[in-house]
């Protein structure tokens, strides 16, 4: 175990199953949580597809299930509202109590949020890694 006050920030910019990026994000995030680090993930661009509820891959690493495990272990996962809205995930306004935009299609583990959710991660995370640059 390590100093639990340190936080790892991760941005995912690509959709799951189309590449290994989402798998890498989830494996690194879970390992970081197991080592005692805090984890903040931001789903951006096509990365927001990782939030889709009901993922059921037959021969692939289940990204949806991994995100749920990450949230259960204390990881914080947010996704970009503008990217989510464009892709049809947002079906309600901002819920102040829940501090997230409403979505019936997204995993409970993921909070749809403004881009400033990512800016806070950039500002506060001790280390930042990004996936999906090209």
């Amino acid at each position: 175990m390590v100093d639990g006050t340190k936080t790892l920030g991760i941005m995912l910019f690509t959709s799951p199953y189309g590449s290994q990026d989402a798998d890498h994000v989830c494996r690194i995030a879970e390992r970081a949580l197991d080592m005692g680090y805090g984890v903040h993930i931001f789903l951006y661009g096509d990365g927001v597809h990782a939030q889709l509820a009901g993922q059921d891959p037959k021969m692939f690493y289940n990204v949806g299930a991994a995100l749920e495990r990450i949230a259960e272990k204390g990881g914080v996962i947010k996704s970009c509202v503008r990217c989510s809205q464009a892709r049809g995930y947002v079906d309600g306004g901002y819920d102040e109590e829940e501090d997230r935009y409403r979505s019936s299609k997204s995993l409970d583990a993921v909070r749809i949020y403004s881009l400033y959710g990512f800016i806070d991660i950039i500002k506060d995370a001790d280390t930042l890694i990004t996936f999906g640059s090209s």
Binding site: K6, R27, A32, M35, T127, I129
Partner: peptide
């Protein structure tokens, strides 16, 4: 690889 990377990136690296 994840564990090794994290230990290095979180505890040692000044640039990641």
């Amino acid at each position: 690889i994840e564990g090794r990377f994290l230990k290095d990136a979180m505890e040692r690296a000044s640039r990641v």
